[in-house]
Amino acid sequence: MTLSNILARRLLAISLGITGGLIAFTAGLPLPWMLGPMIANTIAAVMRAPIAGPEPLRFYMIPIIGVMLGSGVTAEIFGMLGTWALTLAVLPVFLACAAGISFAVYRRIGGYDPVTAFYAAMPGGLNEMLILGAEAGGDERRIALAHAARVLIIIIFVALFFGLFVGVSTGGGSSAPWIGLLDITIADYAILALCAVVGAFIAKRLGLPAAPVMGPMLLSGIAHVAGWVTVAPPTLFVIAAQVTIGTIIGTRFIGATVAEIRTDIGLSAITSALMLIAAVGFAAAIAMITGVPLAQAFLAFSPGGLTEMSLLTLTMGQDVAYVSVMHIIRITAVIAVAPFVFRWARRRF
């Protein structure tokens, strides 16, 4: 495939993403600039449209999301760290339950081999689980489709549930006011850009999980708490990042057969539903004991992607730091523990 052909496919995917975002925004769907592109490109992938994921744009867009998430960090948050202790203590129990339930579904209902079922069931990051699963001898395509479908289903369900049934607004990309390109100063642009570039670089060198979003988020949080900058990135940049993320998620189904997609989405729908039921139970307990809002605790336990769940949290006006930290710990814990658990289970069984 020539370079011009690849660029044309990526351009078509982005065009579908923008169109899907506009339709979703006009229709009043929650989180339209991510859900719209996701749905549009998933449909296009199933229909074998000549599209390709704009993966190179991810390198530039993800840090923007990190900087935006960091802008929601305030000094008052540090006074609430004590209320997070119970959530942190309960999180490993939830992860064990979620992984165990999912493994049983993929193994017993889906008929996956033990390696593929194990790494498809782990509620960690897609890329990390794909790498670990491939090294262990699992089916890479099935692991990738399982995680892509899980993220897709959970984001759609959570956004639609909160937006349409609970009445929590997620429209327009953010609950914050529109920030125009000329509404912030050159100094603000410089600081935010440094947070994005330097944060991503440092996080990658340190080997932190989800480095492109985690590093910029941490530096942006420090900059905002210190008062060096008081604004978030321009809204147009944030929308562009959301369209890119949604488009990439949708294009992950490229090349999969209809039968594969039907099977994997069906199994992921079952595991996602069971995970979300467990998340509701754990979140209700946390909310009752600590006073953390139920919606916030539920978002912390919902096993979607870090970037996507953090965006949902921000657009719902919940505590971004709380939810982001829980998802960072979830992903880190799964990456660190999964290989050891797998080796132990393989020797034992």
Rank of each mutant, 00 (worst) to 15 (best):
F59G: 15
V213D: 06
I64A: 06
A333K: 00
I154M: 13
V213F: 15
I265E: 08
T251V: 11
A256T: 00
M38F: 12
L31A: 14
L236V: 14
T290P: 04
I155C: 14
V337T: 09
P123I: 08
C195K: 04
M309T: 09
A98F: 09
P32L: 07
D188P: 03
V105W: 04
L126M: 05
L3M: 13
Y60P: 02
L274K: 04
M275K: 08
A99C: 11
F157N: 04
W33L: 10
R205G: 13
L12V: 11
T2V: 13
Y60D: 10
A203T: 01
T247V: 07
M129F: 08
V166R: 12
G163S: 05
H224L: 14
R58C: 07
V105F: 03
T42H: 04
S302T: 01
V229W: 03
L299V: 08
G173I: 07
T83Y: 11
S169G: 09
A284T: 08
T170Q: 13
A232S: 14
G167P: 08
V151Y: 05
A85L: 14
L11E: 10
G246R: 00
M38L: 11
A190E: 09
A134G: 15
G163I: 06
G227M: 08
S268G: 12
N41Y: 06
A203L: 06
R347E: 12
A211N: 14
F162S: 08
G133Y: 09
P32N: 01
P123A: 02
L164F: 07
E260Q: 08
R205A: 15
T83E: 09
I261T: 12
L274T: 06
P37V: 06
A283L: 08
S71C: 14
A13I: 02
S302Y: 00
L274I: 09
G133L: 05
A273M: 13
G255E: 13
G317N: 03
G20Y: 05
V238C: 11
M316L: 13
G255S: 05
A300L: 05
A295Q: 08
A297Q: 00
M61A: 15
A284N: 04
I249M: 10
A146Q: 02
L35M: 12
P30Q: 03
A259I: 14
